[in-house]
C-alpha cells in the first residue's frame, strides 16, 4: 500500500524573530488547516494510508475533525520529546514503515531534522517557518496531490524530483551534523533563543548554493553574484570583516543589512573547508546549534547527498500529461 508521512512541526514560526524582525506568527491552527488540505489531496490520488508525527498540539487530530475521507490516518508509536529530535525520529520510523513521500510543515530547521533520516524517501516541504530557503510556499491541496502522485508510483518521475545538497559539519574529521542551506559561525556564547539576527556577529558563512530571491544569510551569496567567479550551482564560503566589499542583503523578514565581506570562495561539490574562527557557535540553517570547542577542528563539506525533494509543479505537470486528473464523460 502507498504510504505518505506528514511531519508538522508545532514550534515553527514562533521564535524570537517576531521581536527582532518583522516575522509573522504562524499559528498551529493554520498548520492543521494545511494538513487537512494535504489529506484531501492525498485521498484524491488514491492514497489510503497516512502516518503522522505525534506532537503536543495535535495538528493531525485537529485536521481530521469532521473530515470524512477514505484514509487510514495513524499517529506513529513513538515517545515524543517535543524537540527537533522528534522530526528526525518520525522520519526514520516513517521510512521503516514504508512511507514513499514525506510532507513536512515547518522551516529550514524542521527539514534539516527530517533530512537526517529521510534517506531516499522524497520530501515535499511546505513552508511554515520564518526565513525559509529550503521549503516553499505551496498550497496544501496541491501539495497533497503531488505527494500522492509520488507515493503511488507507476509514473515516470524522472526529472520531477531533485536531490538537494547538504553541508556536512565535521569535528576532527567525524560527521556530527548537517545543514541544508547554510552554516554560519557567529560570535555568540550560548545557543539561547537559537535564531541569529545580528549580522555583525556573523564571522563566516558556508552556503549550500547561491541563488537570487531568497531571504537570510544565503542572500549574502546572492549579492556577490556579479563578482563571484564560481559557476551556477556551486556553493560559497564567505568571511565577513574588514574587506573590499559591502553587500546589501535581506537577512530577516523586514530587515536589510549592509555586510562587509573580507573574502569569499566558491565551494564545489566535495569541497571541505575549515572553519577559521576558533570561538563562538555554529549556526545551522539559521539556528545556533554547536558551541565551538577549543582544540577541535571544524570542517564544512559540500555534498550532493542531501534529501530528495519533490518539485511540485513538475510532478503535477507530468501527472496531468499522463491523464491522472482527467476522466471522460459526464460526472
Amino acid at each position: 500500500m502507498s504510504v505518505v508521512g506528514i511531519i508538522a512541526n508545532p514550534a515553527s514560526g514562533k521564535d524570537i524573530r517576531r521581536l527582532v524582525a518583522y516575522g509573522s506568527v504562524f499559528d498551529n491552527l493554520e498548520k492543521a488547516h494545511i494538513v487537512r488540505r494535504v489529506l484531501v489531496g492525498l485521498a484524491a490520488t488514491g492514497i489510503r494510508q497516512v502516518l503522522l508525527m505525534p506532537e503536543w498540539f495535535g495538528i493531525g487530530s485537529r485536521a481530521l475533525e469532521g473530515l470524512h475521507l477514505p484514509l487510514e490516518v495513524t499517529y506513529l508509536e513513538m515517545e515524543p520529546s517535543f524537540t527537533h529530535e522528534d522530526s528526525t525520529n518520525a522520519a526514520r520510523l516513517m521510512r521503516a514503515l514504508g512511507a514513499r513521500c514525506l510532507v513536512t510543515l515547518g522551516g529550514d530547521g524542521t527539514n534539516r531534522a527530517v533530512a537526517k533520516a529521510s534517506a531516499d524517501v522524497p520530501l515535499l516541504p511546505i513552508s511554515t517557518g520564518t526565513n525559509n530557503v529550503f521549503p516553499s510556499m505551496v498550497e496544501g491541496t496541491v501539495a497533497g496531490l503531488a505527494a500522492g502522485v509520488v507515493a503511488r508510483g507507476g509514473l515516470d518521475l524522472n526529472g520531477c524530483l531533485y536531490r538537494a545538497r547538504r553541508l556536512e559539519i565535521e569535528e576532527d574529521g567525524r560527521l556530527v551534523d548537517i545543514a541544508l542551506v547554510d552554516v554560519a559561525v557567529c560570535d555568540e556564547l550560548f545557543v539561547g533563543a537559537r535564531a541569529i539576527w545580528d549580522p555583525a556577529k556573523v564571522r563566516e558563512v558556508f552556503l549550500a548554493s547561491v541563488r537570487p530571491g531568497i531571504l537570510g544569510l544565503s542572500a549574502l551569496g546572492s549579492a556577490l553574484a556579479g563578482i563571484n567567479p564560481g559557476s551556477d550551482g556551486e556553493g560559497l564560503w564567505i568571511r565577513t570583516g574588514d574587506g573590499p566589499f559591502q553587500v546589501l542583503a535581506p537577512i530577516l523578514p523586514g530587515v536589510l543589512a549592509w555586510v562587509q565581506v573580507e573574502a569569499f570562495l566558491p565551494m564545489r561539490l566535495g569541497d571541505a573547508l575549515p572553519v577559521h574562527h576558533q570561538e563562538g557557535i555554529l549556526a545551522l540553517d539559521g539556528e545556533r546549534e554547536i558551541p565551538i570547542r577549543p582544540g577541535v577542528q571544524y570542517t564544512v563539506r559540500l555534498s550532493d547527498s542531501g534529501p530528495w525533494v519533490v518539485d511540485v509543479q513538475k510532478v503535477l505537470a507530468r501527472a496531468s500529461q499522463e491523464g491522472y486528473f482527467l476522466a471522460r464523460g459526464r460526472g
Binding site: 514562533k14 524570537i16 521581536l19 517535543f82 545557543v191 539561547g192 533563543a193
Partner: peptide, 15 residues
C-alpha cells in the same frame, strides 16, 4: 508574540 520553549533561562534572557 514569541514562544520560548524548554524553560531555558538564556533564551528567556534574549527574548
Amino acid at each position: 508574540g514569541v514562544r520560548i520553549p524548554e524553560n531555558d533561562v538564556l533564551a528567556v534572557y534574549e527574548a
